[in-house]
Each structure stands twice: as structure tokens, then as C-alpha cells.
Design a protein around this nucleic acid. Sequence first.
DNA 1: TATCCTTACGGAATTCGTAAGCATG
DNA 2: CATGCTTACGAATTCCGTAAGGATA
Lengths: 309, 309
Amino acid sequence: MNFQQLRFVREAVRRSFNLTEVAAALYATQPGVSRAIKELEDELGVELFVRRGKRLVGLTEPGRALIDVVDRMLTDAQNLRRIADQFSGDDAGGLILATTHTQARYALPPVIKQFKGRYPRVHLGLHQGSPQQIAEMVSKGQADIGISTEALDTFADLLTYPCYIWHHAVIVPTGHPLVDFGMLTLDAIAEYPIVTYDEAFTGRSHIDAAFLRAGLAPDVVLTAIDADVIKTYVEVGLGIGIVASMAYDPARDQSLELLDSRHLFEPNTTRLGVRKGSFLRGYMMEFIRLFAPGLGADDLASLAEPRAA
Amino acid sequence: MNFQQLRFVREAVRRSFNLTEVAAALYATQPGVSRAIKELEDELGVELFVRRGKRLVGLTEPGRALIDVVDRMLTDAQNLRRIADQFSGDDAGGLILATTHTQARYALPPVIKQFKGRYPRVHLGLHQGSPQQIAEMVSKGQADIGISTEALDTFADLLTYPCYIWHHAVIVPTGHPLVDFGMLTLDAIAEYPIVTYDEAFTGRSHIDAAFLRAGLAPDVVLTAIDADVIKTYVEVGLGIGIVASMAYDPARDQSLELLDSRHLFEPNTTRLGVRKGSFLRGYMMEFIRLFAPGLGADDLASLAEPRAA
DNA sequence: TATCCTTACGGAATTCGTAAGCATG
DNA sequence: CATGCTTACGAATTCCGTAAGGATA
């Protein structure tokens, strides 16, 4: 048994059993992967993969039983390296964030700037995706920290923590009738075509819930995954927008106006998630501390000892 | 990084950093061990061991931080093999019990007989030791199941379960004055020299506690770790014995008499312990079921999924 | 001086890639 | 017929043991 074999097995599961892809992903050749997997199966005395003809199509029952252990072993191998790097003292390393456009565009820039100042030698990777994809990336160890307002709790092997609370706001073109409406109401908003986030993005569920509670069926004419796109279409006059208030920049968005809507929609909590069992290097903890200053010392401690948590 | 290196590191810690011993224990040569460890340290970029001159004398701080992960990885490697064996279906394998003389001699024989009947191809190993040694053997993975009345909870990484309850009894040579004494008292016993178990063995603490509570200081003239030795010396007339009642066999021990003492000493609970995180093969579970029939289905389930527990 | 680790060298074993072959959708 | 796995062969690498050397209790 060796680590290469385990890596191949894990990757085969991730890449839906296409060994050619596995080989490409892990810088090996396909016959090498094929053989390594077979050798592991021989050594263990069970077939891990179901073969249809010559192709692999799934995990056998023993395969399913073993894959979690394999996963943990490889995570531990990574932990070993990380802990060692931690002690070797240099601040070099990698930090891969998985996050939505909203966070990447509006919430993260100041934090990342500060972080980079303190850890200039850490290579930062920013992976964007849907909340589900984010949760999956962290859960699979492809990202170190996931940041999102939704769905982070859909994977059991994530530890998540609240970071900050934000609100939705309505944006309208300057001169729009709603500007002088006074205290906004859902009814008033529902009179106009609406441009907002895609389902499952950036608190969209709270928007829907508010209208549903009020018995309203607003006309959502366009959805997008990011506020920049939404603002663009609001500027063009397609309708009024509902976005995260932090997406509005008075200096840049002079053709738009922000209307306070805190009283209309449930507040949203952006959460951060890390994979259970993954060791977090010192600078990762520091990043979390920067991004979620509200996290208590005990929360951070539980992150540092993920096995005990 | 490879498993051989990890094994060497783990064994080095266990063998108090004597690499020559490590090599002997793992069927390798000392230079090989030396080199493998150094290569791992190079790869990780930290020294795991403190060297005084050319000798290894302890773990460095990073070494201490890493050793637990190394341990877990090797346990997982073993789990992998066990789970695979489990599925490959054959009932061959090994089961190493760590236990005291008392259990091995009096409690285990019928269970082992039954077990062997059902799993003739499982190789049984019986390691004897003090309760502390037993706990250690299980904790280090040198034994699969530890059985003892004491000390099993001194290691945090053991899961323990009660198996059965037993009592101490007084044994005397036939014709001894105490035979006709009627209901025994601690005072009456304390009149005679006593032969019983060593400290830390077979419920000895309960014996001491009873006398202490009664304000008595009995004359313990000889201690031994097993009832066979104790009985021998009682037969010779060295004193009266206090042993586990199951150690008395009316047929074999015709020169001795057993005096009921259930009312004098706290009852003892023999416990069974397994290592957290170790996968238990089907026949191991079956052994536990045979030895501790009182264990509930949920207890057994929690044993089957040690990581979740 | 015995114990214990290191270094140096050489052979054995393992690993891995290339090339060719074959089954399947 | 393109995709994807297997087999065969050979080269490169890694692994590991023997032998000799040096430091320490």
C-alpha cells in the first residue's frame, strides 16, 4: 500500500471513474494509474471498483466502505505537511478560498489586502462558484476556506461559523418614482419588474420568503449571480434591483440610488466553512480572524484542533 | 512520504528512540531506519527527533505535534486492510487479547472455546500483563481487545464497556477455624495473615478499601498476580486467601474451602476495552458479544463505527 | 569499550512511462 | 471510430542491505 495508490483511488471517485482524467490530473500516465489501482485491490484482496467490461463505473460495497478511510488518510498526509510547514516557520504556503462573486467582489477585498500585507509569501487562490459548489470544494479539500451566505451546512463534514450580517437593499435608476416614496413597502416594490440574484445565491431565499409572506408574486424579469450584472440591467432600465447593500458604491454608481430595505427582508448571515479534520495553518487562522473578527477565542481554538471538535 | 517512514517514526517513539531496536522490531536494518527517518524529516522540512550527539533522545516540538497524526494514519492503514478482509469474506485473521492472568485462567476459557468453534481460522493471541500494561497494549494497537478489572480507563483513547460482575471470596485450608465462624466479618478475617493479589490487580483496591473503611490494617503476608499462586500458599498454610470467587474450583481445590464474602467487599466489574479509531472485524465483534452478552445493540453499533463515536 | 548512529557503496526491487492491443458506446 | 482500459517491455528511480567509520555513555 502506498500513497500514490490512495491518491489515484480518491481521484478516480472524484472524477467519476475516468482513469484517463485521473492520470492527467495527477501528472501520471493512464496505464500507471490502472496498474496502481489494481495492485492496491490485489493487496487488499477486494475489488474497489465496479467494472463494466473494461470501464470503471462505480464503487463496490467494499469500495464505499473504504473510501472514507482513504480520504482521511490523505487528509492526514496533508495535515502532516502543513503542521511541519507551520513549525518550519516560514510564512510561505497557499490559501485557497472558495466563495461567491458577492463576497469576492465586495466583502473580501479589504480583508485580502490586509492579509497580503501581513503574509506576502502566501499564494492566494480565489475559486468562485455557487454556494453548493463552494461547500463541495471545501468538503473535498480543494479549497481551504469557503465563504458564502448559503448552503455551507449542506455537507456534514464542514465546520461553519458566522462572520457578519448584511441586508438587502433596493437600487433604482436616479429619478425613479420610488426614490420619493418614503419608507419602502413590499407592495410598492412588487409594482415594478425586478432584477435580482439567481436562486440559491446571495440570500435570494430571503427575498422570495418576504414576498411569499406578503402574498405577493413579484415579476422577476432577470436574475444573475452577481450585483454588477444586476446593476447594469437596472441602469439600462430593465427594472429595479434588489442586491446586497454593500454592492452599492455611491461614487461609482452615480446613475443609481440605494433605497433602504432593512425593514423588508430578513437579514443575511455570511458564514465561513472549513473542512473537519483539516489542519489549518497559522496564516489560515489569521485570515479567519481578519474576516470574522467576531469569532471568539474558543471558536478559533476548536478550529485549531479539528479532530477534537 | 511513505508508510515505512511513518512506521519507523512510530516505532522509534515506542522504543524510546533506539533505532537499532526499531530496526530489529520491524525486520529492517538500522542504517535503513536511520536513513528513512532522515528522509522524512528532510521532506517535511523539520526535525522530528531531538539528537544529542548522534543519538536520538526525544521528540522535538514539531515531532510531538506530528506523532498523533502519524499514529492515526497507520491505524487507518490497518483499518483499510481489516475492512477489506472483512469483505473478502473469509474468517481468517488474528485476534490479540490483552488480559490479566485471572481473566485468562478463569473467565476466558469457555468463551475462547466457543469462539474457536465458530471461527477456527482466526489466530488467537493471549498477551498477559498488568492492567496498566493491558491498557497500554490496546492503546498502542498491539492488542485488539483488552480485558481487565482495573485501569482500562487510564488511557483516553480507549472505549471501554462493562462485561460482568464478580465478587471476592475468602479461601482457607479445610478445617480452618473460620469455616465454622458463620457469617464472615472483616474483623475475623483480619485476625489471620492474608495472601491476596498484588496492588493494582484483580480488584485489590476494593479489598484494601473495605479494610480501610473498617479501620483495620490486615497483615498481608504475600501478594501475587494470580490466584493459582495464592491458593498454593494458602494450601501451604501461609495464611488465608482473598481471591476472585471464580478462581475456586471445588473439584480441584479439595484441600481448600471457599467462604462467601459478598457482603464484605465491593463487587468488581470486569471491563473490556478497544482502541478508539480502530476498525473491529466481524469476528472481533462476535468475540465481544460472546464475552459480554450484556452489551446492548447500540453499544455494539458504536464499536462498529469507532470514528463516529 | 560497548553501544548506537552515520556515511558510502552496490545490488535488488519497485515504479513508471512508452508502445501496442482490445473492448465498448 | 473515438474513448478508455489492459498488457508487455524496458528504463529510471527508489529502496535497502552490507561494510566501514565515528561519536558518546
